[in-house]
Design a binder for these strands. Sequence first.
DNA 1: AATTCGTGCATTTTT
DNA 2: TGCACGAATT
Length: 727
Amino acid sequence: MSMKSLKDLNQAQLEATEYNEGPHLIVAGAGSGKTKVLTHKIAYLIEDGFNPENILSLTFTNKAANEMKERITAMIGVTKAKKLWMGTFHSILARILRTEAESLNYKKNFSIYDREDSVSLVGNVLTALNISIDDKSSSAIQHQISSLKNKMILPEEFAKFHAETPSEKKLAQVYTEYNDRLFENNSMDFDDLLLKPIQLFNNHQRILAKYKKEFKYVLVDEFQDTNKAQYEIIKLFVTGRTKLCVVGDDAQSIYGWRGAELENMLNFEKDFPKVKVFRLEQNYRSTKRILKAAGSVIKNNPGQIEKTLWTENEDGEMLSVLRCTDEKDEAFQISKQIKKEITSKKISLKDITILYRINSQSRALEEALRREKLPYKIIGGVEFYRRKEVKDIVAYLRVLANQNDEESLLRIMNFPQRGIGNTSISKMIAFARKFDLSFYSTMARIFEVIEVKERIQKNVKQFKILLDKYIDLQSKLSLTELTSALIDDLGVLKMYKEENTVESRQRYDNVQELINSIADFSKQNKGATIDDFLSDVSLFSGIDSYENDDNFITLMTIHSSKGLEFPVVFITGCEEDIFPLNKKFDSDSQVEEERRLFYVAVTRAERKVILSYARSRYRFGEVAYQDVSRFIGEIDPETIKELNNGVRKSSSRRRRAYYDELYQEDFDEFDQERRSLRVGSRVSHEKFGEGKILAINGVGDSQKISIAFEEFGTKHLLTKFAKLTLI
DNA sequence: AATTCGTGCATTTTT
DNA sequence: TGCACGAATT
């Protein structure tokens, strides 16, 4: 072993790093250093003489890929590191697809539709076919289509073998048309980026052979989250001679809803005989208490890969629970706790994260943090590249790159307003379909579309001239110059400035920011084309932009938090119907996935976990009364305590600033209830008579209470059944 | 064709 | 609650 750096690996990590024979699976528990193993493995291989361009390393987020690239660059230098094939499944395959597009009868400048684009295309298809399916939204139908694609069921197969009921038959029709339109638009959706390569490789053995020869070592991170198509691709690349290393944790599989098949991991040993399995079980992140709590919850899931996560870290603090009246109170109490943490314990804001199950929970939290003047950053939510003004400009770039991209073209027809309304557009679409033309070609022949008013025909003509000018300029200007000139020509900045509202100023800034980000991209990626930039934009996700440099509290969904760690973690909304979500309709397997999500949330924490739940919450426009999450009940009572006994009284003046009188009543009632449960209170029990509370352990239904009764001695009772009255 | 107003509906999670 | 979409109005 030549590398010094291998010294800081533990025995299990070292064995996994050094093993480079046949297919192997590394079962890596939370915080067990799997990224370290992956990066060391790659660096070690290259030092050993392996060609970096023969290594394919696949991750799920760009962020994970970038992080690995950085670490490897630090170890082996930028020249070699740059040659690695390293990225998300989607971005690597998009790259391959651009190279091989012709073999699929696509042009290499194809557009990539994100979810929003796909939904809008589905909407257009529904209108065109004049179909509705059980009153489902286009977004629901898009999701169904996406699920089919994830299972690798193509339109023909679905129509032939799976579509039986009338709704299914209609779905088949929509699915078929949707896919045809994608092809005509020279566009692919996210799922196509996985499906098309499979088609490509199956139909062109020579192309497959080329990549098989290239990829001599394939590494896959977050293997538990691969779907059927991704697994298929891995299998295509890997033959007897290829080396394959997959890393994952079945306990952290949280993308079942997106088609991830945990079975890929559980059955890995069946698909690849003579597989060698390594386990990373030592956790370096969390305290003993946190691991115990997380373990006590996840053990309620059957059928896991056997492993025991342990740590040499200290016991640590108890996990704590904040019981709150409603979502506003929850946000307020969390702010209070944060202030306490930063003043008393030298914890800075960037050490703290607030996690939630659904994005809509962030609103109340944001409001409270703003009021308390606590700086925060939201990861995900409405992302920069998904904002209307940004998407509008991006749509222009897409049309410049790919004139067949009808979705983008329709988006900008009347942006900025040039008097081409829906009526005229519908007429043009009708014309295009009738003569089997693309929308763009129809624009060239606008004077033949006699249904459109003459004045508007001229506007269309003008618009076409503008587009052609920039299509031509593409080859003469840099991407940054092109975009700046275009934005200038469109006059959008001027438009936003003149509007001069809070919103328009924001839009102004965002468009400026887009120009900056293009300049930045061009600098980072010398020689990159407009297609490269557009690929990047489509495949960008909120978490990719996360950097923990500035001093902010981080807010995000639990899904986004995967792979990250923070000293202090707040897990909010621990209520039935939020977390786990939709308990009424959930199958066991869905609850199990929610439980794994809970496990992910808890194991993000290094030192402290604070769970919160609200007794009531505004949902669907009305107050819903919430039950405590079953997951809180599953946590080992020895690791958890309630935090906010008596918090309310001292803060009543503060509270008034937050709540109207209606809430006030509720609080006082709540105080009464809390007071009866305090340690030291005297209580009376039906059978055992009077006594004094010695201790309260746990929360919710599993809460236990110890009482020293005068005549019957000390008893440990479940609070739920004890029927105690305060004396 | 654009603006304004009102109704109804929605909430997972994301590459 | 608040957003998106459709009808009504200018």
